[in-house]
Amino acid sequence: MSQTNAPEAIRTDGLTRYFGSEAVVKDLTLAVPRGSVFGLLGRNGSGKTTTIRLLLGLLAPTRGSAVVLGSPCTNLSPETRARIGYLAEGHPVFGWMRVAAFGRFQAGFYPTWNEDVFQGVLRFFQIDARRRGRDLSRGERAGLCLAATLAPDPELLVLDDPAIGLDPVARRGLLEALLYVTRREGRTVLFSSHVLADVERVADRVAVLDRGVLRACCTVDAFRERVRRVVLRFSGAPPTLPEIPGLLSRWITDGELRLTIANYDAAVQRILEGLPLERMTAEPLGLEEAFLDYVGDRGERTFFLQGRRAEA
């Protein structure tokens, strides 16, 4: 059991999964520190769900390995699985099962089931225990799933897009529940999400997957600090840009060139200052904008608006 006290709750090494000849997760190497709230970001189809399934041993990796709570992911013992709470995407519940029966069903698998927590989350989401799964609204279903996931008091909570389809109130409830988990020492949360506001609120660290490749893995603050928007103002027409390392996107408006640059540093600054500039300002971005530019299409973006203006 000494292994279980490793500083990371999850560590992957070259984790790769192919579907046919297509690599859905490619050479993923990352570590989720114990006690952290870890956000897994990426566009649809970037391999988030596949990564989570690989980590939980629901899919066999084509190559590479992962260690979850000290056990290899391909061979998670029931004891290790009992320490992991998993919320599958889309909040699946059994439609015919009543809420109370669902609780009893799940409780039967977990020796550490805490009925107070289950009832508490149900109360929080105002779910009547006599209702059937299929009659619940999306938010209530999420609440039920969350209750069932939290009740065994998991050491590691893995949530696959928990905010999907939730209204703001339910989403807020979800975040509160996440924070509730981290109240206990050494509890780790890994969640994937599209909702950047949620990530900004609760995550310590983020990993960004882009078409199966890990592009970023750092703290939330590091991510937003290291993606910078630089606005260059030229007196005349913008010159052709030299090679700028870390350039994510550029946006040309009248006499102005807006660049989004990852890992903005002095070297980049020198390159930019070498241009015939009128003025240059560099500013940090909001997490959402940073993410948009980060995983959006790379390269030049010009709005058709500009084309219209040229015609006029």
Partner: peptide, 8 residues
């Protein structure tokens, strides 16, 4: 790597 990676 294309220089846009952000790692701790």
């Amino acid at each position: 790597p294309d220089g846009t990676e952000i790692f701790d």
